[in-house]
């Protein structure tokens, strides 16, 4: 079953088109990676899918329902959450308050308590630092909180925008092993990463974004071939 279908999506800021014509779709439980140079529009794509930016045209379907043009607060309730670039933790609020915000986007409020316990299992920082100001957490802990906060909305599709940004290598490993567990639990993942090698290991497909278009798509096996990946990333023809 297609869980996320994006067709002829055009989006940008004011008169500037950043994404020209994006089309791809994902099956439930899949993981896709999106790579591409800085400023190409990866964040714009995720923000548009999540409803923070209104698309100019095209269609975004979640579980077969059109969500393009809907408010972010409605989209999160229908099962799609975004962990934004730079984490965007509410530094003045406590860890628990940050999580409680995630609960507002949860359709099923009755199971809120179990939800907190469930994410705390994955991310212990939630219980060990629950009363602490979130702004005082380390970068890795903040990333854990950002993901936990999105997970608690009970998403079927989770978008992550450069989750490894600014984190130390061992923390990144830990992060991706957590993401793997989330994926194995059945959540569909769409991950934007500058460092392609981080996602190629467990993504089903890698989409390469350039000049407002998906220029190339690599399956798992091709994506792990560094040469093929480089060629696709820099837009070199296969025979060059």
């Amino acid at each position: 079953m297609q869980i996320l279908e994006i067709e002829d999506l055009n989006s940008g800021y004011g008169k500037v088109d950043v994404l020209l014509d994006i089309t791809f779709s994902m099956k439930a439980g899949q993981c896709f990676g999106i790579v591409g140079p800085n400023g190409v529009g990866k964040s714009t794509l995720l923000q548009t899918i999540a409803g923070a930016i209104k698309p100019k045209s095209g269609s975004i379907k979640l579980l077969g329902n059109e969500i393009s043009g809907r408010n972010p607060e409605d989209i999160v309730r229908s099962g799609l959450a975004l962990v934004p670039e730079g984490r965007q933790i509410f530094g003045g609020l406590t860890v628990m308050e940050n999580l409680q915000l995630g609960l507002t986007g949860r359709a099923d409020k009755k199971t809120s308590h179990q939800a907190i316990e469930h994410v705390a299992e994955l991310f212990p920082v939630i219980t060990t630092h629950s009363k602490q100001q979130a702004g005082l957490l380390s970068g890795g802990q903040q990333q854990q909180l950002a993901i936990a906060r999105a997970l608690i909305t009970d998403p079927k599709v989770l978008l992550l925008d450069e989750p490894s940004l600014g984190l130390a290598p061992n923390i990144i490993n830990n992060l991706f092993s957590n993401l793997k567990r989330i994926l194995e639990a059945g959540t569909t993942l769409l991950i934007v990463e500058q460092r392609a090698n981080l996602v190629t290991k467990f993504a089903d497909e890698i989409l390469i974004l350039r000049e407002g278009l998906i220029q190339d798509r690599l399956n798992k096996i091709d994506a792990q071939d560094e040469n093929k990946l480089k060629k696709a990333y820099f837009g070199l023809g296969a025979n060059e």
């Binding site: 923070a52 972010p72 607060e73 999160v76 959450a81 975004l82 609020l93 507002t104 986007g105 949860r106």
Partner: peptide, 14 residues
């Protein structure tokens, strides 16, 4: 939360 960053608050369901 909305006073600090409305965009992120909405993404979480506010």
């Amino acid at each position: 939360a909305a006073s600090a960053d409305f965009r992120t608050a909405r993404l979480l369901g506010v």
